[in-house]
Design a protein around this nucleic acid. Sequence first.
DNA 1: TCTATTCCTTTAATTATCGTGCGACAAAAT
DNA 2: ATTTTGTCGCACGATAATTAAAGGAATAGA
Lengths: 233, 233
Amino acid sequence: MNESVSYDRTLWRWFLVKQERDTVSKRSVIQAAIQLFNTKGFHGTSVRDIASKADVNVALISYYFNGKKGLAEFLMTSFLEGYVSEIETAYQQLETRSAKSCLIEAIHRVMEYQYLNRQLARFVHREITFDSVLIREIMTTYLSKEKYYFTRIFEVGFARKEFRPQPIDYLVMQMKGMLSMPFLHPQYILEVHHIQPNERYFIEKYNKQLNEWIQLTVCKDKKWEERPLVMNG
Amino acid sequence: MNESVSYDRTLWRWFLVKQERDTVSKRSVIQAAIQLFNTKGFHGTSVRDIASKADVNVALISYYFNGKKGLAEFLMTSFLEGYVSEIETAYQQLETRSAKSCLIEAIHRVMEYQYLNRQLARFVHREITFDSVLIREIMTTYLSKEKYYFTRIFEVGFARKEFRPQPIDYLVMQMKGMLSMPFLHPQYILEVHHIQPNERYFIEKYNKQLNEWIQLTVCKDKKWEERPLVMNG
DNA sequence: TCTATTCCTTTAATTATCGTGCGACAAAAT
DNA sequence: ATTTTGTCGCACGATAATTAAAGGAATAGA
């Protein structure tokens, strides 16, 4: 009777890794919730909406996630866990590679991760703009880590005289704005710029733009100190 | 019984201009709505919440704004109208001044406008990340104009060989990400970076960072073609 | 094969809150 | 004096999220 969930696997790839053993119902709920939260918002969608879209019983949501709020919290923490671990991976190469290539790699990983979890990314980024106790906790747990890794990369870049001296916090903020924009505003990109935000081509071109930003405003010289290693490995 | 609205005039200064003749009740509703929408979201706040915070009767909301939905729509269109008019003002100086100083002025105006209407800006920017028919209409009405003005500025900048040739759409998107970030994520700035986002000092420094971005990634040469005229212009 | 246990799912009921519209009434404007 | 505008209390119908209790299916131990 109701349209059921379309299993677009690209939208939640890491769920396949982390939660392969989950019930079909549970995964349906997750999938339906992400989609509905994005169009109608968290408070705007009822558990009935989710349940009927996922084609399961309403009570299942409370059973699995401890209520609607628990479901949202689960989605956010799951996403952010993977998010910061991507940055961490890039950060760990800071000792063996240049700060610049490390930064490029971090950005590339973040973009790729968000691209693979577009819908979820949008939900999380939006939800984080509220201020509640839950959001505050989440921020001190995950985004502080993110800030730490980025800050370290910049600090090392300054120390090695790769980067132009700049106020780090503002640099990080500026960068975060650019990193989240495509996923927070896909509708804007589609409707106003008439560009398809979920085609791979878009994200690659946007990434190239980010690399140019690194080259021109972050780095000190215009000349490349090593071959550009992003995009095609 | 309930805490009433704190009349922080800086939060809605343009309302004083545009709607001086409004009732006290109406303005209270607007003020209360903005504050509540930001902490609990649109669907998360009830009309009763708004009414009790504004210390007026519930029915007044329907009376003034045609229901809760009408209230949100009013807030968004009011904000965006002022928003694009700021950009338009800067755009009109394109013929008499350099593209660069025009862009700097546009950005400065946008930041100032958003700063003066911080809370409202946050609400609107967040709400725009949804996709509904209303949002789509709003985008084609207002954000298309915004895109047009920015695009023109860049085009002229290319034509006059002030700017480095770059894909305009991606430049605009990148810029929009940076322009909305401080107002969409004040909580992040405060909680993670321990910087006060609603102190004037912050927005000035952030603006300076944006000017550097213009200088380094948008413009062609490093040398300044005219004295920097923003900030104390 | 029988039984016990665990996990998954459903039914049904509870309890609360939602947005809106109606009618009345006072103040202000005409 | 009459129309308009602002404000209020109230109640209607709808819908919200959650939980307690029980049914069902599969599995593991005997």
